[in-house]
Design a binder for these strands. Structure first.
Length: 714
RNA sequence: GGGCGAUUAGCUCAGAUGGUUAGAGCGUUACAUUGACAUUGUAAAGGUCGGAGGUUCGAUUCCCCCAUCGCCCACCA
């Protein structure tokens, strides 16, 4: 028998309820699909985007958890064998950056620590942060299966990520290349293209007298590394110079440079003559390959000019630029200087201008893999919500460049390979050992110390989270939905599709649901430096997880950004209270009626009310099915408040007080059953308060609302 | 230089396949209320649905153009 209505405190206090209810669910074992009752057969799977284990959850995570939990709980009630796999991401570079800031504050530096010491410290920090992160996920009510939780540095995960690398190496899809990479001079690592951010920058365009030419450049300090001058083959002005060697003067002497012609030179830009510095410009490097030009490195890994620049050696790039320009002016080699605004790639974490640097690194050959992914999407194996992201995805897949997966940081999964410092070749750790002769040049091989780009492991996450290659859980693959922020359309989604297709020849998920960014109340991006960060946990403490969840989801359409207004969350706390009080009213007015009481004779008006409820159930269910959670939530809200509370309850009051037992009994039955139906349909949005209420509704069974069947029209 | 999204009530936003007086929350105004709930109820004010054209019997909704804001992508030095 249910507990007495006296248990209904006034008003509803989430703080007293939520942790107790969460424990009830965990103890039930129903988060684990294998423990669900018999009726749950067909799998429904979501892999949680593993939050970074380097801090607390932010507002965006709140929306992620809310949406994914809504889907999972809805499908579980619909009788699916629902699995939501939680995880934690070591978040390679990101965490290393967080930790380096911490070291800086303590007056320490990673560059003064040995690799193992640094790794162990970051591991301790990460494992500690992971606990907080997990507590936050629980506080938001996530009904995920903690028994299956995976960490991206679990030994089994590490081993499998490395195995994928070996497989790709053997399949000729990963190779050791020597070419320009994005180098961050602060963090001392290369970065992939998606880890750089192009920033508009006001610079100067210097026109330098350059033998018989004038060349325009924003980087005069690289002149010492120039190896050629390039012109367009059709440029009448310069045709006669092509193939000749010219003499170029600079402050430290003279250069003898060959004049080459290349289609890529735009005759319209600058003077139509381009100085070629292969070691410090991506485009120039490519020309050096096609034209077999030498390469002269003049800037080192710290962004300082090296010994090849004479008196400028040791100067930082910007310092050297000023000095070189001054000296060129003295030599009367500067023709003019123009203001120039252009986009410059910067490190997305520290904003340092990226220094293109030619280095040996590991690359993934993208073209054949991207084609697999694009074909799968064109064949409609994957559906995007909202659908315009399909176009963005395809554009991206049709224009890929090879992916640099080497990072010069310790925090991550080590690349299982050996490298040759002499000829830049690479070999698998399964084929060679430290000290073996390089298969290419015969010199001794050394063990690779670089780690993987974190997206190399995250990209395999849907499989790894299900324990691949072990078969036990692969029945949950392909998963049903991948729900994540729209900013991950480039960074993460394509890589998961690619690895899924490559490793098991099946897409990792059938539907991609992308939510927008959660911004502050003015619609501005949240950032620590702006001080406008709103913590979902603070809001949960203040208004309850239920209010936060429904407040985040209602009014937010997929793909569109959301302005997080605290008053809105507050409004849904009021809604919680409304639900609570309506429940108190019903329970104190139904006598000994229970949910097991058979349906009594109803009046015509009662039938009308039930018909209307049936329509609401149908409509709300359809919204759930079609990922229109904002509409499902809104309709639930309005039905409960404006129809059930304002109209139906008010209408029943006289009947509850009436002496006519038939009229009274039907009113009681109606109220109790409409309430229960609403509680069920609200559960995915507001799991705590609804489970609490379900626990005190009078009925024989002691079952949890968590696994209650989804209601059907009466 | 490309691409995408937005532009609807004071504020934050909904309006799925075009169709009766365009909606919500918050805010505002008036009134009510000791019996589920002031975290309330009833009612009201408030919008030429960014601008110009087109398709249609009919467009906030579909098409074209323009404007403003925002986001993303981009190796023209």
């Amino acid at each position: 028998m249910a507990e007495t209505p006296e248990k209904l405190t006034k008003p509803y206090e989430p703080a007293n309820t939520e942790s107790r209810i969460y424990k009830l669910w965990e103890d039930s074992g129903f988060f684990n699909p294998d423990s669900l009752p018999e009726r749950h057969k067909e799998p429904f799977t979501i892999i949680m985007p593993p939050p970074n284990a380097n801090g607390r959850l932010h507002a965006g995570h709140g929306l992620t958890i809310a949406l994914e939990d809504i889907m999972t709980r809805y499908q579980r009630m619909q009788g699916k064998k629902a699995l939501w796999v939680p995880g934690a991401d070591h978040a390679g570079f990101e965490t290393q950056v967080v930790y380096e800031k911490k070291l800086e504050k303590e007056g320490r530096s990673r560059f003064k620590m040995d690799r193992k010491e640094l790794y162990d410290e970051i591991m301790a920090f990460t494992l500690e942060s992971k606990k907080h992160m997990e507590a936050d996920v629980k506080a938001l009510g996530a009904s995920c299966d903690w028994s299956r939780e995976k960490f991206t540095l679990d030994p089994s995960v590490v081993a499998e990520v490395q195995e994928t690398f070996r497989k790709m190496y053997r399949d000729n899809l990963v190779y050791r290349g020597y070419r320009t990479v994005n180098w961050c001079t602060k963090h001392q690592t290369s970065l992939s293209d998606v880890e750089t951010e192009n920033v508009e920058k006001a610079d100067k365009l210097y026109y330098i007298k350059y033998g018989p030419f004038v060349v325009a450049t924003v980087r005069p300090e690289t002149i010492f590394g120039d190896v050629a001058v390039a012109v367009n083959p059709t440029d009448e002005r310069y045709k006669k110079f092509i193939g000749q060697t010219i003499e170029v003067q600079h402050p430290e002497g003279k250069l003898s440079l060959i004049v080459i012609s290349d289609e890529e030179v735009d005759p319209e830009f600058g003077t139509g003559a381009l100085k070629i510095t292969p070691s410090h410009d991506n485009n120039d490097f490519r020309m050096s390959e096609t034209h077999k030009l030498p390469r002269v490195e003049v800037i080192d890994q710290f962004g300082k000019l090296n010994e090849k620049t004479g008196k400028y050696a040791g100067m930082k790039i910007l310092e050297a630029r000023i000095k070189v320009v001054e000296d060129l002016q003295v030599l009367e080699l500067i023709e003019k200087i123009e203001d120039y605004t252009h986009a410059v790639p910067t490190c997305y974490k520290c904003g340092t201008t990226i220094e293109p640097r030619v280095m040996p690194q590991w690359f993934v050959k993208m073209a054949p893999l991207a084609k697999l992914a694009a074909d799968a999407v064109r064949d409609e194996k994957i559906k995007f919500i909202p659908d315009n992201f399909e176009k963005i995805f395809l554009y991206w897949m049709d224009n890929t460049m090879d992916w640099n997966i080497s990072r010069q940081i310790v925090w991550g999964i080590q690349i299982p390979a050996l490298i040759c410092a002499h000829c830049n070749a690479g070999a698998l750790d399964t084929d060679h050992r430290e000290g073996d002769s390089c298969p290419t040049c015969g010199k001794p091989l050394t063990t690779e110390t670089d780690t993987f780009d974190t997206w190399f492991s995250s990209g395999q996450w849907p499989l790894l989270a299900l324990g691949y290659p072990e078969k036990a859980d692969l029945g949950f693959y392909p998963t049903d939905v991948m729900e994540t922020g729209r900013d991950l359309i480039f960074k993460w989604i394509p890589r998961m599709v690619i690895f899924g297709l490559y490793l098991v020849k099946e897409v990792p998920f059938r539907t991609v649901y992308l939510h927008g960014m959660v911004n502050d109340k003015h619609g501005k991006k949240m950032s620590k430096s702006k001080g406008n960060v709103v913590s979902p946990i603070d809001l949960t403490d203040k208004y309850g997880a239920d209010a936060l969840r429904i407040g985040l989801v209602i009014g937010n359409t997929p793909g569109n950004d959301l302005a997080l207004v605290e008053d809105k969350i507050k409004g849904y706390k009021h809604f919680c209270n409304k639900i609570w009080n309506a429940t108190r009213f019903v329970l104190t007015n139904i006598g000994d009626m229970t949910l097991d009481t058979p349906r009594p004779a109803l009046t015509k008006r009662d039938e009308e009310i039930l018909t209307e409820l049936g329509k609401a159930i149908t409509s709300i269910t359809l919204h759930y099915e079609n990922f229109r959670f904002h509409l499902a939530g809104e309709e639930l809200y309005h039905y409960f408040w404006n129809t059930f509370a304002d109209v139906i309850i008010e209408e029943m009051k006289p009947r509850l007080a009436s002496a006519d037992p038939v009229s009274k009994k039907s009113a009681q039955w109606l109220l109790l059953n409409i309430l229960a139906t609403n509680i069920k349909m609200l559960h995915p949005f507001m799991p705590f308060i609804t489970e609490e209420i379900w626990g005190i509704l009078p009925r024989e069974s002691k079952s949890l609302l968590l696994v209650e069947p989804w209601p059907k029209p009466f």
